[in-house]
Design a protein around this nucleic acid. Structure first.
Length: 829
RNA sequence: GCGAGUAUGGUGAAAUUGGCAGACACGCCAGACUUAGGAUCUGGUGCCGAAAGGCGUGGGGGUUCAAGUCCCUCUACUCGCACCA
């Protein structure tokens, strides 16, 4: 049986040591550095995807610690949510019990992986001492007018009598009973995220995030500058505003489309024939009889119906038909659009389908457009036609002028619109934070008193899958109105779990505070998070909600910082055989098995080595083996002389010592310095852990074959210096392994209290370089030459090279390109 | 439909940002050692070719002395889309 390094013993030993010594507790002294990974939803055991994020965060935390920062590195659990409730329905176990069992296992897994958390800060969002502050903050938002109620549609299963999450709708059917899902209007709570639309955009300049994430957010917030145009309903004269970003095409508007829920539709019904009303209602009904999930919206054919009413275009008095369409959204813009089929592809298709009129208003330079021959919309630039005084103008210029003119004539109002919606936070579920609102017949909406918080989740509930369990709890529902003390009813909606995760990173700073969510002095020292790590799937929702909450807490005077996450690292998924690991595909790998078979350090090393953080990571069992073998090789090499160097002082070599070394050992010393530089840059700056690992392997490949004579003082010094440097560089990656070797080498304190190694720029410089010679861009020779030769010297060498001469023979030199210490390109004809 | 990515050997990937394509590793091949083992060590390994040499970074086109890297265009795949977290 092969001898492996004793990873099990080592890992257990250091877990105990770190825990007993609270090695990773932040000291509160010096410059703080807050590293945070997105906390897990404890739905069962941690999987490899988790191991990856947390390993990446842990490497950064260790590195900054060794760089001398007071590192804040907390962990907790995003513990409210739907899966716990599903488990309750399925297995008749209380969501709390299920959740706490999972949390306990996750905590154990974190410890086994050697994650360097400050466990004293731990939180779970389902605990009363956390969600109390959700309620407290909700009240503050309500007082500021940032929380309000309005009606909106939800997925509804009529059979279960319950609201369904998008996830619970499969092919338009309820996942449990397969009843066709409908839309239902409910009055629900919203947070006014749109109050901060502009700051959410402007804040991007203050943070160091991947461009693609800020770009996604920008698109999500969707700022568009346009104009609200005041169409009027022809019969009643009722105002029918539409929003458009294309005022240049206003003279080409040939019909108007309303969202099916648009309030004007109800008025129109009173004006048109009974047959029309039937038609309209049938259409409204059809739209309502579908769920509101994305896939449905995508697959939905664009459909509409003529209401029989007309609208007046303010700019020219044109009378255009009013339609309703399933693709016009009530909650964007004004819930109504003007259609210009000649210059918008979506409108074009719709107009063709229903045989609606078209007018060309933009003519390209090259050819002349005719409505009768058009096969698609013309969406490029051109000159305006059929546009009154604006004819002949370039459409882009004209757009601005038309908008100004319309505003002056009071035909419209220039405005900025955002695609960002207010945040619907009501959930008709049990396992979440109860919203602390009370409904009193006399007083209306009244908030629960601060001193009565938290409003606790009741225990006298049953999980049947039908209806909201909270509605059946009398002890919960029936309350006295905090204002008039009369009988009142408690809100049964709970909060979206995104509320929990929108400020948990703030609570970590002061997780035990019983009179405020956070103490301001502490917040001001510890916030913002300097480095946040998590999946890019949170680019839009979580990362916008968290920024919104930070703005709100700032405006409430609770904290001073505006942007919660200074730097963001988004890591890819862990895949196997090209597919995301999932139970249904049977391609999962259990972290527990990995730790058992190879130890946590090998699992960590493989994940860091296999792929740079932003890319997906292809799992490979053979690759894990390779990482394990590498650790074993290092272990053997360093162990070979560990007893001889244990009691000697660590020293480095000076120039005169180096001159006495063999060329290979001199090169090893240089390589060590080069590797320190490379790893420092890769880990500290680029966050490319794969290349950091590769360069440590390169160093080891030079170190491993060399023999060291333990009777020779220089050899001993070099051996110890190389070994220690390597271990220090490896410490953030493989903490147990490094701690063990470090202390075996005679060091008395934890490696994580040591300084990150420095390199000497002088020691790095190579004395020669392989110079490349090209003829007309093709490489024809490579010659090892001293550094920093002049172009003149290089040319001499080049023209003297027999290989080059062969290619230069009989040709005329046209040009010579010289790149110092790199190449000479001789261009010939 | 809208939005964001990705594409380099048999595989995971690297390339100091326009300057030697394939570092490092996996796998494979050959060998050494050996009380056969999924251990360790040594050498080889992009493709074609006997060699000289040629070809090669998803396809096509362009800029340049020089392109994986810049520009245009096409294709394929992956992810997100507001009640999963």
């Amino acid at each position: 049986m092969a001898e492996y390094y004793p990873y099990k013993e080592i890992e257990t030993k250091w877990h105990k040591f770190w825990e007993a010594n609270k090695t990773f507790k932040s000291t509160g002294v010096g410059t703080k550095y807050y590293v945070l990974e997105m906390f897990p939803y404890p739905s069962g055991y941690l999987h490899m995807g988790h191991v990856r994020v947390y390993t990446i965060g842990d490497v950064i935390a260790h590195y900054m610690r060794m760089k001398g920062y007071d590192v804040i590195h907390p962990m907790g659990y995003d513990a409210f949510g739907l899966p716990a409730e599903n488990a309750a329905i399925k297995n008749n176990v209380h969501p709390a019990e299920w959740t706490h069992k999972n949390i306990d296992h996750a905590r154990l897994q974190f410890k086994k992986l050697g994650m360097s958390y400050d466990w004293d800060r731990e939180i779970a969002t389902c605990n009363e001492d956390y969600y109390k502050w959700n309620q407290w903050l909700f009240k503050r938002l309500y007082e500021k007018g940032l929380a309000y109620r309005k009606a909106t549609a939800v997925n509804w299963c009529p059979d279960c009598g319950t609201v369904l999450a998008n996830e619970q709708v499969h092919d338009g059917k309820c996942w449990r009973c397969e009843t066709i899902v409908e839309q239902k209007e409910l009055t629900q709570w919203f947070f006014k995220t749109t109050a901060y639309s502009q700051e959410l955009l402007d804040g991007h300049d203050k943070i160091d995030w991947p461009d693609r994430v800020t770009l996604m957010q920008k698109n999500w917030i969707g700022r568009s500058e346009g104009i609200r145009i005041f169409f009027k309903e022809a019969k009643s004269g009722e105002l029918l505003p539409v929003f458009t970003t294309r005022p240049d095409t206003i003279f080409g508007a040939t019909y108007v489309v309303l969202a099916p829920q648009h309030p004007l539709v109800e008025k129109i019904k009173k004006e048109v024939s009974p047959d029309k009303v039937k038609e309209i209602e049938a259409f409204q009904d059809k739209v309502k009889k579908s769920d509101i999930t994305v896939m449905t919206l995508i697959n939905m054919e664009k459909e509409g119906v003529d209401t029989g009413a007309f609208a007046i275009n303010p700019v020219n008095g044109a009378k255009v038909p009013v339609w309703i369409g399933n693709y016009v959204l009530m909650d964007y813009g004004t819930g109504a659009i003007m259609a210009v089929p000649t210059h918008d592809e979506r409108d074009f298709k719709f107009a063709k389908k229903y045989n609606l009129p078209m007018i060309v208003v933009i003519q390209p330079k090259a050819n002349k457009l005719e409505v009768s021959t058009m096969t698609g919309a013309y969406e490029e630039e051109g000159a305006l036609v059929n546009s009154a005084n604006f004819d002949g103008m370039n459409n882009i210029e004209a757009g601005k002028k038309i908008a100004v003119w319309m505003e002056k004539e009071n035909f419209g109002k220039i405005e900025v619109n955002y695609r960002l919606k207010d945040w619907l936070l009501s959930r008709q579920r049990y396992w979440g934070t109860p919203i602390p609102a009370i409904y009193c017949d006399k007083c209306g909406i009244v908030m629960e008193k601060d001193e009565n918080l938290p409003v606790k989740l009741p225990l006298d509930v049953e999980f049947t899958g039908k209806g909201n369990p909270l509605e059946k709890s009398h002890s919960f529902m029936q309350v006295a109105c905090p204002k008039c003390n009369g009988p009142a009813k408690r809100e049964t909606d709970t909060m979206d779990t995104f509320v929990d995760s929108s400020w948990y990173f703030i609570r970590y700073c002061d997780s035990k505070n019983t009179h405020l969510p956070i103490d301001k002095a502490i917040a001001d020292r510890e916030l913002p998070v300097d480095q946040y790590v998590g999946g890019p799937e949170h680019a839009c929702m979580h990362l916008i909600y968290a920024r919104f909450f930070t703005y709100v807490l700032r405006d409430l005077g609770l904290i001073s910082c505006s942007e919660p996450f200074k730097k963001l690292l988004t890591q890819g998924m862990v895949v196997k055989n090209g597919a995301k690991m999932s139970k249904s595909k049977g391609n999962t790998v259990s972290p527990d098995d990995m730790i058992e078979k190879y130890g946590a350090d090998t699992a960590r090393l493989f994940m860091l080595f296999a792929s740079p953080p932003p890319m997906d990571l292809e799992w490979s069992d053979d690759g894990v083996d390779g990482s394990f073998r590498f650790l074993n090789r290092v272990w053997r090499k360093i162990s070979s002389h560990i007893d001889s160097v244990r009691n000697m002082k660590s020293k480095t070599l000076d120039m005169s010592d180096i001159e006495m070394l063999s060329p290979q050992k001199k090169q090893l010393f240089r390589k060590t310095h080069q590797t320190i530089k490379k790893v420092t840059n890769d880990v500290g700056k680029e966050q490319q852990f794969n290349t950091a690992v590769a360069s440590i392997m390169e160093l080891f490949n030079e170190f491993n074959p060399l023999e060291f004579d333990m009777n020779n003082e220089l050899d001993k010094i070099l051996f110890k210096f190389t070994a220690e440097s390597m271990i220090l560089l490896m410490a953030p990656l493989v903490p147990h392994f490094s701690e063990e070797l470090w202390q075996s080498l005679g060091n008395k304190s934890s490696i994580f209290t040591c300084n990150w190694p420095d390199y000497d720029q002088e020691m790095i410089v190579e004395d020669s370089v392989e110079f490349v010679f090209q003829v007309s861009g093709k490489i024809r020779d490579r010659i090892q030459l001293p550094l920093n030769l002049s172009q003149e010297d290089i040319e001499k060498t080049g023209f003297a090279s027999p290989k080059l001469q062969e290619w230069l023979q009989g040709k005329t030199v046209v040009k010579k390109i010289f790149v110092k210490n790199k190449l000479l390109n001789i261009v010939v004809r």
